[in-house]
Design a protein around this nucleic acid. Structure first.
Length: 311
DNA sequence: GTCCAGGTCGTCG
DNA sequence: CGACGACATGGA
């Protein structure tokens, strides 16, 4: 077991990380206010908060995705991102009431999560509630993942690893569909995407190139059945660390109408309007961090206005 | 019973 | 393009 200390210049709420894209991945994550545990790149990782700006990290390997654990975790928790970078002064001054409401969400992080996990979990997130999405991911991990009991000091944590691409690629659709809310189309799309990833048709390295323009990245992801604009943008934001990607779902659409008085956001969301709202968002937010900002607003909207409890 | 959930896709006007 | 239904289930 390796142990590292990481110092952070910005605060990070580890429980808040659960509100990130990993809101779905309930049984392959365990987190509380001062700790976070998961299996990342098939290695067990445990993070404990020592103070607001210091973490200790335990890992059973010295490298994750080929880079040192401290470097990886710093990137994973995106503790390099500062809230004043995410929201420019103009935004803060233009929406003072909203800014005050939003201040409770500043310690929430957008994680730089695993590409494959992100792709599959967001393919489960189509027009159904958070509860059902999490149920699907839970079943996927239990049926196709690996059970792992992790011991960190005195703390025992039971988790499932996320299924490997191959295990989903070879899955029988009738069995897999039990994990996808009985939706066979979704199950077939997931198996197909897993196959494409295994075979390199979905070229992870190519997609990870930060020079790749967002529209092109979106176009390539949308080549896969079951991935539309919204899910492609989620994969870019959470799975490729593209904080400029701005996924527009039913909640984002609602707050664009309510908080930013967008008339377009009141109409049904067609592909053409999606692109139009995407353009609008880039005039409201710092385009470089539009998605990061949008994610904070997403949770703020759900909790403060819609009174939805994610946990 | 009705409506809405972190949508996507095929079909039709 | 835009509207509409299918896909599926469960909580409010």
């Amino acid at each position: 077991m390796y142990r590292f200390i990481i110092k952070s210049c910005s605060t990070c709420d580890l429980h808040g990380t659960l509100f990130s894209g990993q809101s779905f991945m309930w049984n392959n994550i365990d987190a509380g206010y001062d700790y976070y545990a998961s299996i990342i790149d098939s290695s067990a990782v445990f993070i404990r908060k020592l103070s607001s700006h210091e973490f200790e990290v335990y890992s059973d390997s010295s490298m994750i995705y080929g880079i040192s654990v401290p470097s990886f975790i710093t990137s994973y928790l995106s503790i390099d991102i500062d809230i004043n970078k995410v929201f420019h002064d103009r935004f803060q001054k233009s929406y003072p009431e909203l800014w005050k409401l939003l201040s409770g969400y500043f310690s929430l992080r957008v994680l730089r999560q695993d590409f494959f996990e992100t792709m599959i979990t967001f393919m489960c997130a189509q027009g159904i509630g958070m509860h059902l999405i999490r149920k699907q991911v839970t079943m996927l991990c239990q049926m196709y993942g690996e059970k792992r009991a992790l011991l960190f000091g005195e703390k025992l944590i039971n988790l499932y690893s996320f299924p490997t691409p191959l295990s989903l690629a070879e899955a029988d659709i009738s069995i897999l569909s039990r994990c996808t809310n009985n939706n066979r189309i979704r199950a077939a799309n997931i198996a197909r995407a897993a196959r494409a990833f295994s075979e390199g048709v979905i070229d992870h390295e190519m997609l990870r190139n930060p020079q790749l323009p967002l529209p092109e990245l979106r176009r390539v992801l949308c080549l896969n059945p079951g991935i539309g604009y919204k899910i492609a943008d989620c994969i870019a934001l959470f799975g490729l660390g593209r904080f400029d990607a701005f996924p527009i779902d039913t909640h984002v659409k609602q707050y664009l109408a309510h908080w930013f008085r967008s008339p377009e956001a009141l109409k049904p969301l067609t592909p053409a309007r999606y692109l139009e709202l995407d353009r609008e968002a880039r005039t409201i937010f710092n385009p470089e961090f539009a998605g990061y900002a949008g994610h904070l607003l997403f949770h703020c909207w759900r909790r403060e206005i819609k009174k939805l409890r994610t946990f």
